[in-house]
Design a protein around this nucleic acid. Structure first.
Lengths: 202, 202
DNA sequence: CTAAGTATTGAACACATGTTCAGCCGGTGT
DNA sequence: ACACCGGCTGAACATGTGTTCAATACTTAG
């Protein structure tokens, strides 16, 4: 475990920014606050990153790299993300909401990988067929991302602190059950939706 | 359809704030910008709402009311939310991420309702049983909320603009398919997860 | 019509923000 | 020994922020 003090100042600033951006949002975080957290003068952060925007991009690049390098060839495309360090997760959630280009690219990349993974599973017989593979991949990724984005609320309701493993486990297990056995015992909702949809398209 | 100009200034300010807060985040929105959108002086917004914080609370109350009154006794507990006006949706997503007390209360309330709804369905036989009803309700709500929070990215990948119905339909349908038929054809992931979990707890 | 009260504004204030700049410190090469 | 150069800082600047306040327009009651 690295201690904060033996990192280069540049890295300390990046880590502090990651944490603060994730907690308070990018607009809600001041350069001064980041500098203070890193034990550094505000002038140094702009010396290293050019501007606040530059700092944000550095954060984008950092989480992008740490996710991509994490397990490019891993089977479960998103498993790595969910197990990344918590500040990274929170920052990722913020970035996705703030809709930065980097976040969009990352989301698209995750979806692509997941779609390929699901297609492979379909070939091998352990994933069911479906009408719209693209839509399914997008929806599936959204679902995996959801507890991450809503982590605070989910954690609060499931007891224990949000970062803790044991609370995430309950949600993950419940999700897996739904994905394996299904949630609804008959197709009443699916049929109802299809009916409405067709009526609208006529 | 009401036009913007025949609303009371107070309502215009609230609507403008709702939209801007949802788009740019609360910290990223200035009182002046809201005032300009509402065609009003900055001084008036604080005259009506006391402070920027007061304005945010008014927005919280507004979406809370419009959701609660929308369909308190409706069957699908969250269906109303997803069909609410788009600015409200975007604001709700922001509020959930910013973790305001009001948002937390709303999330808890939605989960409670959903859990009751699922329990009823279980009694009536159209919802499958499960090990952890609470966790399932929380996860289910997260899933329904996910496309809302990640709306931009989902919409972009599914084509068309995010607010449009036709793009949301694809995702919703894919989701319903997964919830009805299941996604995985066998229980390899569920079994694997259970195995890991048990090993950890021994 | 007058009085009262509310809606609304323009100008101002105090403060926080992102950014700049001239300079200091400490190590490295010559 | 010197010069040099990158990490680093304190003070300053311009601007944008939330908020205040006195004063004006507008509506409504007596």
């Amino acid at each position: 475990m690295r201690s904060a003090s033996d990192l280069t100042a540049r890295a300390r600033i990046r880590d502090a920014a990651l944490a603060r951006f994730g907690t308070d949002g990018i607009a809600g975080t001041s350069v001064r606050a980041v500098a203070a957290d890193a034990g550094v003068s505000p002038a140094l952060v702009v010396h290293h990153f050019g501007s606040k925007e530059g700092l944000r991009q550095a954060c984008d690049d950092y989480v992008l790299d740490s996710i991509r390098s994490g397990g490019a060839a891993a089977s479960e495309a998103l498993g790595e993300v969910l197990q990344a360090a918590t500040p990274v997760r929170r920052y990722l959630a913020r970035a996705l909401l703030d809709d930065t280009p980097a976040a969009g690219a990352l989301f698209a990349e995750i979806v692509d990988r997941t779609q390929a993974w699901l297609a492979a599973g379909e070939d091998e017989g352990w994933v069911r067929g479906c009408a719209d593979a693209r839509a399914r991949a997008v929806t599936y990724v959204s679902w995996l991302l959801a507890p991450l984005v809503l982590g605070n609320h989910v954690g609060r309701l499931l007891g224990g602190d949000p970062a803790e493993t044991t609370t995430a486990v309950r949600g993950t297990r419940a999700g897996l059950e739904m994905l394996t056995n299904g949630l609804f015992a008959d197709d009443r909702w699916l049929a109802a939706f299809t009916a409405i949809d067709e009526r609208k398209h006529r």
